[in-house]
Amino acid sequence: MNYVLKKEVFSKFVNSVLKEKGIDFIAPVKSEQNDIIKFQKLISFSDLCLDKNAYYPLKEWFFKKNEVLFEFKGDKITIPEKKPKPKIFFGVRRCDLNSINRQDVAFSEGCWDPYYFLEREASTLIGYHCFEKEDNYCFCGSVGLEDHYDLMFYDRGDYFLVEIGSKKGAWFLKQRIRFFKKTTERLSARKKVIKNANRLQKKNIAPFYDHKNWKKGVDLCLGCTSCNTLCPSCYCFEFKDKVNISNLKNGKRIREWSACQLKDFSEVAGNHIFRSDREHRFKHRIYHQLQYFNEKHGKHLCSGCGRCIRGCPTRIDFVGILNNMKTKKPNVKKPKK
């Protein structure tokens, strides 16, 4: 069963959720200083910005930049008790919803990551569908996105069509049912397709690993790692021990984001670096996103949001580079007579 939320009621709905105690309402907000849209705790309805996708990904709310794993005092280790506040995320696009699903897969694979899933369980994801691609960097149509949401809002002119995707979403809606009305309207899969977004034409990039065209992108790369930090599904991390300056035996171990574009990412004892070439590091990221993860889990790690290209200082368009690559024709040597 789908629901309808009229746009006149929309502001009332948001304001009522904002007034509820014990819940954080997080939505894209445009900063006044530099016009960058970021997911933030919403204070008033007028700050809400749904025109464009957020520049920064949503991952920092679950997979945190600095996560304290434990604190130590000499030989004693204490695990901090974490009770995350229930959070509602509104205005999450389809690409971000998928990338959160990919991180769920990565952090539950093998052994369950408690720090990530504590935050994840306390969250309700409300999506906002974009019917058109945002700009020329998007390529979400060609990475095979699926439906992963608790609630999904479709903008239908003067009303929102709301779809329920999980029990959590249904429960959230049931509490605020006074704003919604039932409908029988349904959107077919064809209508949900984001238009003109299937820019990446290659489905299997494995044969191009040794292609010479990679050099075009590699030569422009500065190794600044903004692609890693802006990627909504990159999940590599590092442990660091931060000690108190007053007493060096006390401190805490922190989990920080890490970036595979950094040279010391694969450095081992004896100063040996396994991926010392920039080309290997550049290819490693793209192949992890589009091939390695797919081989294991049957879906791309990349969600096609285009943030890595939009945020790159030299705008390296790896999708364009991949599209221009052509498979070498097999060199069939004629047998010598």
């Binding site: 990551d113 590599c236 590092e238 442990f239 890490s258 694969s266 081992v268 192949y287 390695y292 081989e295």
Partner: peptide
């Protein structure tokens, strides 16, 4: 094989060789 390792549980990505 020998690689840089951080987590030991197949998550942190430092030790990855072609997936």
């Amino acid at each position: 094989a020998e690689r840089r390792m951080q987590c030991g549980g197949g998550k942190c990505g430092h030790c990855m060789i072609h997936g």
